[in-house]
């Protein structure tokens, strides 16, 4: 095995691990991780075999003529959901086939995708708060309850972002956020402002619901990736439990 070839296959392996771990930690289903990594590997003339778990990725890359192979394991960092990245990598994987991208070009594209800007913080806070108010309306709230939910969601999400920035455990961050939102919504219920009812309280924590873990869990289970599906489902349940915990504390304090 000559050194030049060895270096090249290592480069491909590093790149494929980057792609796989980025997809996994940003909210792609297991099937999508496997398909995308295989697609890129095949387009570059290699074969990839993957072992995908929720917290790490194991990869063996073999050259198509079978003379050279290499294996490696990498930890998948726990991360938030970033669909811009998932979508960007998916598009890039097609360009590897259609435009015959080289490994260097792919690495540049990964770098570009990971540095893409998020929505400005105030936009995220306001739109998520508006989503909370919309939930309130959908469950039959009036204008006053909607504004209570808006404020509660705004500050709840703010606290969650701050807790994550200060590197709290993610479940604890969710419990903090749920507690903050329900303290704000609960205050208006307790003081009896207008006709604020439980709708405001129940919908003020809905911005925390684990939609991505649950839907990906089911996709994985239906896809035959049973173990990953179970792991994601359990993760979703712990998040739901953390939400309930924060809400419960607030309700006990107000005696609602």
């Amino acid at each position: 095995m000559n050194g030049e070839q060895n270096k090249k296959i290592k480069e491909v392996e590093e790149m494929l691990l980057d792609v796989g771990t980025l997809l996994m930690s940003n909210g792609a289903s297991t099937g999508r991780v496997r398909t995308t990594v295989n697609r890129i590997a095949v387009a570059l003339g290699y074969e990839a075999e993957l072992l995908i778990t929720s917290r790490s990725l194991m990869l063996t890359v073999t050259e198509e003529n079978g003379s050279d192979y290499t294996s490696s394991v990498r930890r998948t960092p726990p991360h938030g959901v970033n669909f811009k990245l998932v979508s960007g990598i998916s598009r890039m994987s097609w360009r590897v086939i259609e435009d015959k991208l080289t490994v260097e070009q792919i690495n540049q594209d990964i770098l570009r995708l990971t540095s893409l800007a998020h929505f400005p913080r105030i936009v995220v806070l306001s739109l998520v708060a508006l989503a909370g108010a919309s939930f309130c309306r959908l469950f039959g709230g009036d204008a006053l309850e909607m504004s209570v939910t808006f404020v509660a969601t705004f500050f709840g999400l703010f606290i969650r972002q701050e807790a994550i920035r200060k590197r709290f455990n993610p479940y604890v961050a969710i419990a903090f956020a749920s507690f903050t939102a329900s303290m704000i919504a609960g205050l208006s219920v307790r003081l009896g402002i207008g006709a604020v009812r439980e709708t405001a309280l129940a919908t003020s924590v809905l911005f925390l619901i684990p939609g991505v873990p649950f839907i990906n869990s089911l996709t994985d289970l239906l896809d035959g990736n049973t173990l990953n599906g179970i792991v994601r489902g359990v993760n979703g349940f712990i998040i739901a439990f953390a939400i309930a915990l924060g809400l419960l504390f607030a309700m006990k304090i107000y005696g609602i």
Binding site: F83, K84, L127, V128, A131, G132, G211
Partner: peptide
């Protein structure tokens, strides 16, 4: 709101 939270394109 959730789309923005999940940072969609």
């Amino acid at each position: 709101g959730f789309a923005v939270l999940f940072n969609v394109p």
